[in-house]
Simulated scan of single mutants.
Amino acid sequence: MNILIVEDDDRIADFLCRGLRAEGYRVQRAADGTAGLALAQEAARRQQSGDEPTVVVLDLMLPGMSGLDICQTLRAAHVALPILMLTAQASLEDRVQGLRLGADDYLCKPFDFEELLARLEALGRRGREWRPRTPNRLQVADLELDRDRMQASRGGQPLSLTARELALLELLMSAPGRLFSRERILANVWGTSEDPLTNVVDVYIRRLRSRIDRDGAPSLIHTVRGLGYRLEAPPEADR
């Protein structure tokens, strides 16, 4: 899960970034409201394309644009990212206003880090429940994946793949041309409990290639050394 922290206090932001990264989250930070709104809008676009859910941790008093204005702008644009207001403004009126403008939760400073984690986990689960409609059939060049039957084929010939290989293929085919890091693949296909130093991703990529790129078919899975993998059609397949 991605956490977007919109906080102008460097001390608090540094504490949050270090703590959340240590818990295994991917973290972004914006120091003013304008930058925070732009990052939230970009996260929403990525999520529409199948990227991991993002939760926004939003301060109220920000330079450039207030947290309330950010929240109201996102909700007016039908952006459904979960929003946790994190602020020193603890009055009942402030909390009610934040929730009415579209915040999903409200936590007052000073806060307990364990409580923050629990609230983020709950919001993350809610974010995963909301997913954009995805096509039942994915296709890249002559490679197809029927998501309803979880059956893959290439050139009309069925492919015999294990459940894990199908999950890996589905991830890569969900965003053709997108570079997926080993860490992202590991988190999406195996879960965060898997040892991050394992070479299981590389092993399964090799296995998947051996099943897909048969009989001289053009390779569809490409390695970007030191960064990860992408699946895309060869240029001639687009003509």
Rank of each mutant, 00 (worst) to 15 (best):
R46P: 00
R230S: 06
Y106G: 09
Y106W: 13
P53D: 01
R128D: 13
E236Q: 14
D59E: 06
P196N: 00
L92H: 03
R26L: 11
L107G: 04
L74P: 00
D32V: 07
L107V: 12
L60V: 14
L143W: 03
C17R: 14
E170G: 03
D112H: 08
R95H: 00
D202V: 04
D32A: 08
R207D: 03
D213P: 05
T223Q: 12
A38F: 01
L166M: 08
S153D: 14
R126F: 01
R100E: 11
F180G: 02
R239P: 00
R207H: 08
E114S: 12
T54I: 07
L227I: 15
Q139S: 14
L107A: 01
I212F: 06
S91H: 01
S66G: 09
L197K: 01
L39Q: 13
G98P: 15
H78S: 15
E121I: 05
D213V: 14
G124D: 02
R149G: 07
L68T: 07
E52H: 08
R46G: 03
E115H: 08
A35N: 06
R214V: 15
E236R: 06
D195P: 00
I221W: 06
D69N: 07
P135N: 05
C108H: 02
L159E: 07
H222M: 09
Q157F: 10
I70M: 08
I12T: 14
P63A: 09
V56H: 02
R211E: 03
A80Q: 12
R149W: 10
E115R: 06
L62A: 04
G36P: 04
R119S: 13
A22M: 06
G98W: 13
R225W: 02
E52Q: 10
E52L: 15
R21G: 10
A22D: 08
D148I: 15
W190T: 06
Q157V: 13
M1E: 09
A187F: 05
L99A: 06
C71M: 05
A167P: 11
L145H: 08
G191S: 11
D51L: 11
G33S: 04
Q157Y: 12
G33T: 15
A141I: 12
D14Y: 04
A88K: 04
L116Y: 11
R137F: 15
D69H: 03
I5W: 00
T223N: 13
S219A: 14
T87F: 15
D69P: 00
R154W: 10
V201G: 05
S219M: 14
V56A: 09
R131E: 12
A163Y: 00
L171M: 11
A80T: 13
A175K: 00
S49M: 11
D104V: 09
A77D: 14
Y25F: 13
V55A: 09
E170Y: 04
V6T: 10
H78Q: 13
N199A: 05
L92C: 00
E232P: 04
L168H: 11
A118H: 01
A237W: 03
T34E: 12
A118T: 02
R225E: 10
L107F: 13
D69I: 06
A13N: 02
D213N: 06
L92P: 01
P63D: 00
E42K: 11
R26D: 13
P176W: 08
G36Y: 03
E115Y: 01
Q47E: 15
G36Q: 01
L120K: 07
P53F: 02
